[in-house]
Every structure is written in C-alpha cells, then in structure tokens.
Amino acid sequence: MKQTEVETGGPCWVELSTSDPEAAKWFYAELFGWRVETDPRPEAGGYSSLLLGEAPVAGLAPAYPPGRPTSWTVSFAVADADAVAELARARGGSVVMEPMEVFDLGRFAILADPAGAVFSVWQARAFGGAAVLNEAGSLGWVELATRDTAGAKEFYTRVFGWSVTLGGSYTQWGLAGQDFGGMLEMGEQYPPEVPPHWMPYFAVADVDLTAERAAGLGAEVVLAPVQMDGGPRLAVLRDAQGGVFGIHAATGE
C-alpha cells in the first residue's frame, strides 16, 4: 500500500463487529499493541476505538443484531454519503443501511456491491478516520474477494473513480497513483457458501512472528506466512470469534 493518509475515495477506517467484544479487545491489544478506548455514552452502544499510541487505527463494536457473525468491515472516505449511496444503487449495488449521522463525528452508510460484498462509506466531520496508515500496527491494504471481477471493476471505478492495475490474476485498486487495495477472484479454494467480501490487511514488522503470536493467543492461521511473487510477505488469520483479517510486512510494496 502506497497510501499513507486518508484520501477521498480510499479506505479510511476498518471496524470489527464481534460476538465477544471483551475477548476481541484483549486479543487485538496483545497482538498489535493497540490501546482500547470505549465510548461511555449509552447511545454509543459499547463502541470502542482501537489506538496505536494516540492514533486511532480501527474500531470495535458488539455484533448487531446479536447473533450476527463476527466480521471486519472496510470503510471508504466520501464527500457525500447520500450521493454515493444513490450512485451505488444506480450502478446495481444496494443500500444495507441508509445514511445516518454519528454524533458530530460524521455521516455513514452501509452498502453492498452487485455481487453482495458489504462495505461502508464515511463522510467525515469531526472524525476523519484512521490517523495512521501503512505503518506497523495499522491498516496497510484492503482486498475484495469476489466471483465477478468484471462486474466489480465496473462498479467500483464508477462509484469511487478508482484506477485499475492488472498484475497476472490479481487486480490492484488505486487513487492518484497510490495503490491501496486489490481484488482476488474467488476460485475453488472458497466454499460455495462463502459470500464475496472485503478483508483488511494490517502492516506488521514481522509476519512470521505475528502469525505465531496470533496462534498462541487463540487465533487460527488460515493462510500460513507466504512470500508473494513481486509483493510482500503475508498471512491470513481468523480470531477466536471468527473475524478474518490479513497481515503483511510493513516494508512491502
């Protein structure tokens, strides 16, 4: 990921919706050294900010409605959440949650692309999103897994204006010359019941040690550390509640 600060149209935040917030707070604090700040206001619903030092890097909330599977959601920065929601709908996507205000922090909506991959959009006011990107312990890449790569290219380039760079079987997304994510075609390695989805990757100083530590903390190593041809070393993990995320070498392109 070359993006080092939030740009309109690019990823600005990731949020974990989890069945066990206390266990998740402990796990991610131990794994990434994140500090947890939970909003005490009842109307915040137990929402917590995860910080790297003083810098907010991710969010965590109890799963809603109760019983919803634990998952990470990727959010993209927009100038007008309502306009983007309408554009997404016009391009074949759907609005899972209509745009709404979040205190004085901003306005957000939850959307899905035509294949069903869910993401959110954030119109910043007092809160601009992640204060750090692409440094060890922060968001470093976002990846779409889908069975309709052609449809995804059409949808996301129209809605967000992303550039598309093809590299063999992998597609990279970018803005103004800065790559921030990619797209993977879902093949036979994905069971039919697994839906298209977005997944965050967090940058780490040492992929192998972080994967080993995650396993020791109760996570499952879904994809053991591997060196990508022409890319970074990476691994994919699943926390004890089922939240899947990736890690990659912070120095990798």
Rank of each mutant, 00 (worst) to 15 (best):
M1P: 11
Q3G: 00
T4G: 14
E5A: 13
E5R: 09
V6A: 10
P11E: 09
C12S: 09
W13M: 04
V14F: 04
S17W: 03
S19T: 14
D20C: 00
A23V: 05
F27T: 03
Y28N: 03
A29D: 12
G33V: 04
W34N: 07
V36S: 01
D39K: 03
D39W: 00
A44R: 02
A44L: 00
A44N: 08
S48W: 01
L51F: 06
E54W: 08
E54K: 07
E54D: 15
A58T: 01
P62I: 00
A63K: 03
Y64F: 13
R68C: 11
P69R: 00
S71Q: 14
S75N: 15
F76D: 06
D80K: 01
D82A: 08
G92V: 03
G92A: 06
V96S: 11
M97R: 15
E98L: 02
E101M: 08
V102F: 05
L105P: 08
F108W: 13
A115E: 14
A115W: 02
S120F: 02
G128V: 08
V132F: 06
L133D: 11
N134A: 12
A136Y: 04
A136W: 03
G137F: 04
W141G: 10
E143V: 03
L144D: 09
F155E: 07
Y156F: 08
S163T: 13
V164F: 00
L166Y: 07
L166V: 15
G168E: 04
Y170T: 10
T171N: 03
Q172V: 15
Q172W: 10
W173C: 03
W173V: 00
D179K: 08
Q189M: 12
Q189D: 14
P192Y: 02
F202G: 10
F202N: 12
A211T: 09
R213N: 15
V222F: 01
P225Y: 01
M228Q: 14
G231N: 10
R233E: 12
V236R: 01
D239I: 07
Q241E: 12
G243L: 05
G243D: 08
G243N: 04
V244G: 10
F245P: 05
F245K: 04
I247Q: 03
H248F: 10
A250G: 12
E253G: 15
